[in-house]
Write a protein that binds this DNA or RNA. Structure first.
Lengths: 163, 163
DNA sequence: CTATGTTATGTTATAATATAACATTATTTG
DNA sequence: CAAATAATGTTATATTATAACATAACATAG
């Protein structure tokens, strides 16, 4: 999870403080309430782990953390929670490296661009209307009904380029 | 593999005939020659299987086909061949469904957009400069050096929407 | 042309990611 | 409370991919 800030392109730019995580979890709870869905202890716990992670995390990493927290957990435990969170737009899945990260803007559905550093794993969620518009146009041309657009850009982040 | 045709946006639009596959394999051989790389029997065989596939295929599907062809083969057999073909830009990997398909334009490196039908698996490779430009711009803004952009759009193709 | 190094392939085992199937528990609702 | 539904627990297994080491094929210098 990352904080929304006011660049010319919307983006996430900081690691979340404890307080920010708490706010995000509250927003998630409200959202589930509004949709008449259960924001269970497990789902909250998984979302919190994803939020607190400095970088996108793998499902088995989350599984380890769940186990360490004392909870009984197996792969389906974490995958089911992640599936729920994905459906609700609270987390994203990066298919290029099979990791999960909290969504920067859970309020409204959107197409996001991810800049994934191949060196350090740091990942920026960016919102780019230009890309979305272009994909919409392209899809229209092929009479293709978009369900989901995965735009995952791998490369070197600023920090890793420097060093 | 799919044929290049002259839409306003470059795209692949047909399933390849035997002849087209032969031409593609010859181009691949030439390209390897030029680069002083070995276009071995295995690599050629894997590329041909990928080309002939109606749709993007999984590695283990290719493995089965290799075995059926009488060749001794294990997972590394096919993954190594695929890695080579990926490096040479002769095939693409779709990370959203872990499949491989022949590149429509192996001549020059490029960023491609894939329209992947979630119903029938049919996949269009499309080239969209607008998307590339926008991603380049976005990367620049973050001082991010792009290595690879995976743009995979899942949805319903024209045929599947209709029915 | 053969010795030597290098590249490619064969082979076995295993890692990493994800789901199926069924049992149990918790929650909602009639 | 009873029945229905939704969520979680649990065991097993499917799917995708790589590690590690042995052998074979090819390239090239002598």
């Amino acid at each position: 999870m990352t904080e929304h800030c006011s660049h010319s392109d919307l983006t996430s730019c900081t690691q979340p403080s404890s307080e920010q995580v708490a706010i995000f979890l509250q927003q998630a709870a409200d959202l589930c309430d509004k949709r008449n869905l259960r924001f269970t202890r497990l789902r909250k716990q998984v979302l919190e782990l994803v939020c607190r992670a400095e970088q996108p995390v793998g499902a088995y990493h989350l599984l380890d953390e769940l186990k360490q927290s004392g909870r009984s957990a197996a792969p389906p435990t974490v995958y089911r929670a992640l599936d729920f969170l994905l459906e609700q737009g609270l987390v994203h899945r990066l298919s290029t490296n099979n990791t999960y990260l909290a969504c920067a803007h859970p309020q409204h559905p959107h197409g996001a661009v991810f800049l994934v550093c191949s060196e350090c794993g740091h990942t920026q969620e960016v919102h780019n209307e230009g890309v979305n518009d272009e994909l919409d146009r392209q899809a229209k041309q092929f009479d293709f009904a978009i369900q989901h657009a995965a735009v995952e850009v791998t490369g070197l982040c600023s920090r890793c380029r420097g060093s």
